[in-house]
Design a protein around this nucleic acid. Structure first.
Lengths: 229, 229
DNA sequence: CGCGAATTTGATCGACATCAAGTACCGTGG
DNA sequence: CCACGGTACTTGATGTCGATCAAATTCGCG
């Protein structure tokens, strides 16, 4: 039968083991073979670095997912970014990390000594430019996210989030969420109940289908984009 | 009488004409005399550059104040930053501006061609590093502001804002606000009514005194700081 | 002084938070 | 393979903070 490929083939989630050669090359690391790269795997909810710690390494996610967040003294949490496969994080201009980074699920990272990167930047303008560009890309994301947190409604926030994840990690049209509703809520400045209700409403409206709470398939990206404002 | 200095001496606001030599030197501009610097003065509410425009110049506020913002399609506005005297803004890693910049009041800026800055950065690692550091400082502010917008209460937001302005522009203990309540609200993700009510409550609690709505004197910074976090 | 804009203040509303059960998922061990 | 248990998720009822609507009042400038 021709439709055997349509049968529920267990799609490997984006954050699982990458295919050989996947996410292997980063422009930053390939130019400078003298940079010592080490790898490490963190278990679920394990801290990679804490807010205020000296920034000794810069990281790249090889497998898994990471949340970067800050806490208010009463425990409220704001996740500033999710770091997904191929993302570089922990790059600081100052000497210390300004957000805590935690593995969301089992996560393998590559690490490069920050000092060695800086040394490479001093002798290679292209590397210096890449460091600047990476920070500028983070800034762009933060600017987008300020608009979301300051002015978007709950539905607009969730729609924006789903489109962001669709763009970044969808595999054959399906988004496999590595994070909980609580993580999503703390990223979007909402409560987990509001996130859950909003996803349910989107499902009822037919803009997405769910196969389990962590597997979302966007059915109408155009409508979702219109809702995201 | 000895108290003549206590009489309402008309304190020059921070954003007025700077004293001779004030804000004259920036590390970026002084190192490279070949950089051509021009000046321009924008009237109140005049646009300096729009979102999406090609980033031809980098700016420094010499006098006045600027708001950088983005709009949602329905007109809701999120101000990402206020640019005050000595602040550099409009520096982009990509080719175009990502936020609109408008003069809040009559504002004098210095402008440097972005291309000439980049040329200087290519030959001078220190300049390249400064560009990176400036972007990283913007990122730090954005990270702080995401926590505020996502998780702080109205009172915490206003307290944070007042302390930020106190640190940046207070003159002999008084903050002279160049911006309206509406600007403040759009910076803090609130409405102008909520900002007004909150300032009134702070006044009633005695943490600040007002001499006109645009002149605030912080009476109890410690309490305000406790409220901010 | 007088005018328009900015600000304050009051009354009411509503979106989202909070509190509280239920239900589904999923990894573990029998 | 299935039963079990804990966590994650959904759903419902109610509460509340800040938004919205609506006037005053004040400010600041010509």
């Amino acid at each position: 039968m021709l439709n055997q490929s349509l049968a529920a083939a267990p799609v490997r989630p984006h954050w699982g083991q990458p295919a050989p050669g996947d996410a292997e090359e980063s422009p930053l690391l390939s130019r400078h073979p003298e940079l010592v790269v080490t790898e490490f795997t963190y278990g679920r909810d394990k801290c990679i670095f804490g807010e205020g710690e000296i920034a000794e390494y810069v990281y790249q996610v090889m497998r898994g997912a990471v949340r970067s967040y800050r806490l208010l003294n009463d425990g409220r949490r704001q996740i500033g970014a999710f770091r997904l496969v191929r993302d570089v994080f922990g790059l600081e201009s100052g000497s210390s990390h300004r957000l805590t980074a935690e593995a969301i699920c089992e996560t393998k990272v590559r690490m490069v000594k920050r000092r060695s990167l800086e040394a490479a930047a001093k002798s290679d303008v292209v590397v210096a430019c890449q460091l600047w560009t990476m920070t500028a890309n983070e800034l762009r994301h933060a600017e987008d996210h300020m608009l979301l947190l300051g002015r978007k409604t709950a539905a607009q926030r969730v729609a924006t989030f789903l489109l962001e994840l669709d763009r970044r990690i969808s595999v054959s049209g399906e988004v496999a969420l590595p994070m909980t509703r609580c993580d999503i809520a703390d990223y979007l400045g909402l409560t987990l109940e509001t996130v859950s209700r909003t996803v349910t409403q989107f499902h009822e409206k037919g803009v997405l289908t769910l196969s389990g709470p962590r597997h979302i398939r966007l059915r109408d990206r155009a409508r979702l984009a219109a809702m995201a404002a």
